[in-house]
Amino acid sequence: MEKKGWFDVVQSSYVWKSIFRHEYQDTYRNRVLQISTNVFLHLHPTKIRRHALRLRFTWCMGGITFLLFLILTVTGVILMFYYRPTGEYAYHDMKYLQFDVPFGMIMRNMHRWCAHAMVIAVWLHMFRVFMTGSYKPPREFNWVIGVNLLVMTLMLSFTGYLLPWDQLSIWAVTVGTNMGRATPLLGHEGPFAELLGVDARYDARALLTAGRLIGPATLLRFYVLHCIFIPLLAAILMIVHFWRVRKDGGISGPL
């Protein structure tokens, strides 16, 4: 007679049976149903090509990028409960988060480090996709969407950089947005801008920073961009990106 393992003992217990009405039978039909009847899992096809499991082929970087985006969404929403994007309060709320809010510090750390990790993961994902020639037909357009998602990732990270409202953030954003004033035609120090007559108050940079200086108005603008506008755009692009992976024949592989 076969010896019963601890899992068998648990499974045959009265409590277990009260929770799970019948056992899971590992049949082809059930394997397919697990995917197709689950709202989250049916992002996947029910069957995939064998090489899609090989980490040496995929590096799993697309999935990791998406996971990091989800972690950033959760930690970001938690941070939003405690943070006010105004000149008076922003920095104090950071201190409050770090020293007084339970688990505030680890939420902030996770948000920041996952943001950095996401930038790297996107780069590695694109690197892998390029090296395997996966942008080739029929996946040309999904690569274009992917490049737009790269831009969204960098913009999310950049707008978030200002929010702590400390010396690091204000000057990094100053250096970054100063490029805007050199935009050809549309920035007040850019080539041919004189011809259009733009000035420091009304040019490409002022549109981004809400005025001539990085001030409270910039903070609010970056906050809205960071928490609402860009995440929504990125989410829409991600939906299209994942959809296209399916519609273009699943992940790439040798033909």
Partner: peptide
Amino acid sequence: VTVWSIVVDAPLEEPANPTKTPNPSKAP
């Protein structure tokens, strides 16, 4: 990322001060 976030704290410098430019000023 959990271990990373427990071990290393995110930086927070002095409050933003538009009159005090650090040298060097670096972008992200």
